[in-house]
C-alpha cells in the first residue's frame, strides 16, 4: 500500500515570487516514480523556477516539496540535475572528463579529490552519451550538442533515482536529440524518474508519457494522452497557439 503509492516528487501549494511578481502560484504537483515527464509552458511560465524550487535553489514564498516523502536536503544523493547549458561559461579552463567528474563531487563530500573509481564512472557515463573520444577536449571547443551530452554525462555519474533536466534539447541537432531521447527512455526503463523542461510541443507525445502544463499556475498534469489536450494547451498558452492536436 505505502510503497506502491510513494510519490517520487510531491509539490504542495508552492508559490515563488521575485520581488512582488509571482513566478509560480500555488502549484500542486505529484510525480509518480518511473515516468518520463515533460514540463511545458510559454516563456516566463516558471518552468526553470519550478525545477529550481524542487532542488531548493530558489526559496519559495510558501509551499513544500517532498522527494519520496522527505525534504530535498535529505534526498540530494538520489537526485541528479542538468542545468540549462547556457547557465555556465563554456570558456572555463577545463576539459570534458573534468566536468563529468563534477557529478561525483556530491558523494565525495568535502575536500576529498576524485580518484580512479570516479574516473572510471565518468568514463562509463561518457560512453553512454557517445563522448568517450572527447575526454581531454577543452570544453570551449564543443558544439552545443556535445556540451549538452557532457552535462547529461555529469548527471549520469550522480547515479540518481530522479533526474531534473532544464531544456536538454535546447540548441542540439536532430541526431543529438534522438540520442538524448533514447537515453532518457532508457533511464525510465531502468525505473528512474525523469523530469524535463521541454519547449517543442510537436514532440511531447512522441517522447514523453507524462506531462505538466504550466503557466505560473499548474494548468494540468497527468498522462500525456489525457492531459495533452487542445483545451489544456489553449488554457496554458492563452489561445495564442496555432498547434492543433489531432490524434
Amino acid at each position: 500500500m505505502k510503497a506502491s503509492h510513494a510519490k517520487a516528487i510531491e509539490v504542495t501549494d508552492l508559490t515563488v515570487a521575485y520581488q512582488e511578481t509571482p513566478v509560480l502560484w500555488d502549484i500542486d504537483l505529484d510525480v509518480p516514480p518511473g515516468v518520463l515527464l515533460a514540463i511545458v509552458g510559454p516563456n516566463g511560465a516558471g518552468k526553470t523556477t519550478l525545477i529550481k524550487a524542487i532542488l531548493g535553489l530558489v526559496r519559495p514564498a510558501a509551499g513544500n516539496v517532498l522527494i519520496y516523502n522527505k525534504p530535498y536536503e535529505a534526498q540530494r544523493r538520489i537526485v541528479g540535475y542538468v542545468p540549462q547549458r547556457g547557465s555556465v561559461d563554456w570558456d572555463f579552463p577545463t576539459n570534458v572528463l573534468d566536468v563529468v567528474m563534477m557529478g561525483r563531487y556530491g558523494s565525495l563530500g568535502w575536500i576529498r579529490r576524485p580518484g580512479k573509481r570516479d574516473r572510471a564512472l565518468a568514463m562509463q557515463a561518457l560512453e553512454k552519451v557517445g563522448m568517450e573520444n572527447y575526454t581531454t577536449r577543452q570544453i570551449s571547443q564543443l558544439s552545443g550538442g556535445q556540451q549538452q551530452r557532457v552535462f547529461l554525462a555529469r548527471a549520469l555519474v550522480q547515479d540518481a533515482t530522479i533526474y531534473l533536466m532544464d531544456e536538454p534539447f535546447q540548441g542540439v541537432d536532430a541526431t543529438t536529440e534522438r540520442a538524448i531521447v533514447t537515453l532518457l527512455q532508457e533511464l525510465r526503463e531502468n525505473g528512474k524518474t525523469v523530469v524535463v523542461v521541454h519547449h517543442d510541443l510537436q514532440t511531447v507525445t512522441d517522447y514523453f508519457d507524462w506531462v505538466t502544463l504550466l503557466n505560473i499556475r499548474r494548468i494540468a498534469s497527468g498522462p500525456v494522452e489525457d492531459t495533452f489536450t487542445s483545451d489544456n494547451l489553449r488554457e496554458t498558452y492563452g489561445g495564442r497557439i496555432a498547434f492543433i492536436k489531432n490524434r
Binding site: L57, G106, I111
Partner: peptide, 17 residues
C-alpha cells in the same frame, strides 16, 4: 574542488549540497 565547482557551475554546486 569546491571552489572550482562554485566558479564553473554555482547552481549545480548548490544542488549537490
Amino acid at each position: 574542488k569546491e571552489l572550482k565547482l562554485l566558479v564553473f557551475d554555482e547552481g549545480f554546486a548548490a544542488s549537490i549540497g
